[in-house]
Design a protein around this nucleic acid. Structure first.
Length: 309
DNA sequence: AAGACGTGGAG
DNA sequence: TCTCCAAGTCT
């Protein structure tokens, strides 16, 4: 398996006790203070709006791909009000090839709601954040914690993997569940400043050390406390994760081709032009129908298809 | 509550 | 080449 060079002799450690989990949090906070990457959203004075935009872009998308889009976006639309006054199609166009373009539409809708219902200020309340389109358990708490310093458990895929290994002794986390929030909450330092650092630090640890493929256990700050290591790095034995379907030839690929065409065009794209994008007419029609249903594409009064207003 | 939803880099 | 998977959310 992939962890061969990370394995070491299993120490006799009692993992999972309150003491150990408290040490884990403290060690991660200390490690993060020394090892945090310099990222745009960690710059002093980065706005709550910037945090919200970055969290949308980071959903299922690697940091390195997000950074250039984020900088462009915030230069152009530095406030929710600025984005709200632009056509939603411009948001989709500026999203470029980040993927999952519904996020651009949702982010635009967030800007409109924030402008009209929240006085142009990104909400700090988790309930109000959850009410925004495209904002789920992760993003709502990430904004509350990172933009406003509130003490909430922030649970993403990195956090779940680190907790699965260090606390539960499993190679991989169980499928996401509401219980993850409670589990993280139990580890969260009482002090909001440290809680914030722990939330960010455990994500960072999962992103750069306790990675999915080849964890760098030799440089892990909680190596000595890790339940997975203590158990001798047992392989994952839970339910098999659903295999992601092949992208080549998929409806997703066809949707992507159509969206790329709409982004590139500044006049309506004719059905004939769309027809040239993909040989399978039935699949193409299905993809286009889906985009129309999602509001990512709209019929133009003059004929053809465009991005939304 | 599985499955849909983009894209591209790494191994 | 091909599989995995990356700061999730929605239905």
């Amino acid at each position: 398996m992939a962890h061969t060079n990370a394995r070491e002799a299993a120490p006799a450690t009692i993992a999972g006790s309150a003491t150990v989990t408290g040490e884990i949090a403290g060690d991660i906070v200390d490690w993060f203070a020394e090892n945090a990457r310099e990222l745009p959203w960690r710059r002093p004075g980065f706005t709550a709006w910037g945090v919200l935009v970055s969290e949308f872009m980071l959903q299922q998308t690697p940091v390195t791909r997000v950074i250039p889009r984020l900088e462009e976006w915030l230069d152009r639309w530095p406030t929710p009000e600025a984005l709200a006054s632009a056509p939603s199609g411009e948001a989709v166009r500026a999203w470029k090839s980040l993927g999952y373009p519904r996020r651009a539409l949702w982010l635009h809708a967030c800007a409109v709601t924030i402008t009209e219902c929240h006085g142009g200020v990104v909400p700090s309340d988790v309930g109000e954040l959850l009410a925004l389109p495209g904002v789920g358990d992760y993003t709502a708490r990430a904004v509350a914690a990172f933009a406003y310093g509130a003490r909430h458990p922030v649970v993403d895929t990195n956090t779940r993997r680190v907790l699965a290994r260090a606390v539960d002794g499993n190679a991989e986390p169980a499928p996401p569940s509401k219980r993850d929030l409670a589990a993280m909450d139990a580890l969260l330092p009482a002090d909001p400043v440290r809680a914030r650092a722990f939330n960010a630090g455990i994500m960072e640890l999962g992103a750069v050390v306790c990675t999915a493929r080849s964890p760098r256990c030799e440089s892990c700050p909680v190596r000595e406390l890790c339940a997975w290591r203590a158990a001798g790095y047992p392989e994952y034995d839970g339910p098999r994760k659903a295999v992601q379907k092949r992208f080549e030839g998929s409806d997703r690929q066809v949707r992507g081709l159509i969206m790329a065409e709409l982004r590139a065009a500044h006049v309506p794209v004719s059905h004939e032009e769309i027809g040239r994008l993909w040989p399978d007419a039935a699949q193409l029609a299905r993809a286009l129908a889906g985009l129309l249903a999602d509001g990512l594409a709209v019929p133009s009064p003059q004929g053809g298809i465009t991005l939304p207003e």
